[in-house]
Design a protein around this nucleic acid. Sequence first.
DNA 1: GGATAACCTGCAACTGCATTGCATATTACC
DNA 2: GGTAATATGCAATGCAGTTGCAGGTTATCC
Lengths: 138, 138
Amino acid sequence: MRPDLDTTLTQKNIRPTAMRLLVLDYLLNQTAAVSLNNLETYFMRSDRITLYRTLKTFEEKGLVHSIDDGSGSVKYALCPDDCSTEEHHDLHVHFFCNQCRETFCLPKSHIPEIALPENFKTEEVNLMVKGICSKCTR
Amino acid sequence: MRPDLDTTLTQKNIRPTAMRLLVLDYLLNQTAAVSLNNLETYFMRSDRITLYRTLKTFEEKGLVHSIDDGSGSVKYALCPDDCSTEEHHDLHVHFFCNQCRETFCLPKSHIPEIALPENFKTEEVNLMVKGICSKCTR
DNA sequence: GGATAACCTGCAACTGCATTGCATATTACC
DNA sequence: GGTAATATGCAATGCAGTTGCAGGTTATCC
């Protein structure tokens, strides 16, 4: 069904410790991006700092990317497979639901060129759409 | 040259106190969006909290809008004239320079429709472009 | 023009999230 | 199995944003 967790980590040069496997498993089961607080709530028996560093490690190694959705806490979501360590300028769109306050990575919809003033160079584009998600619409 | 500061404030239902006139004057002279820290540094003799509340008041009354550029501190910039109190969903693009770490409001370039999954409703769109600004390019 | 009410300012203190130092435990490797 | 590298957990800190309250200032009404 899902790729071997252990392999997923080692392929990204991340030591597959118990904690990390648990976190990865959790991430794989989420439809929305998760915050440190989400993790903390879920893994009550574990330490906040460890979870924090786990996410940081995952991010460094290109397994997850961080999303600043303006909610005050950074969210993390698994990267698509083509994400490398060096480059993961997220060109995909993120959606923040104003009601349930969850954040979703939207399937890569191409962001068109933005017309910039003279001599401005684009390195990265973050597109954050806010509104009501499908769950909350009903 | 520039519209009367006093009038600008009263038109927005903001009491023109000395502090607010100073802050407004400062804002009018900026090309980049300003953070609370910027203000604090500039108005050394004044209180951080008052500056904070001045910005908040300006924002509430629709004189400035806040920009979360991902730098960790919120920036503020004067709204275009057509900004009303109730609605200022900034549909214009913001640019963050990765070098000088300044944030600019870009002239209203139209953001195209974003294709959302079924039953997702857009209420607001934030487009943050990051790169190198014209000053830093040279 | 003076009294009162509304509002603004400044100090102190608090919150929440992110982050770092250090000692201990765990894992990888020879 | 022993040693070095890495991960974990606890404590503590930093920083931006925020709130309560007392005192000062401004507007308003008579």
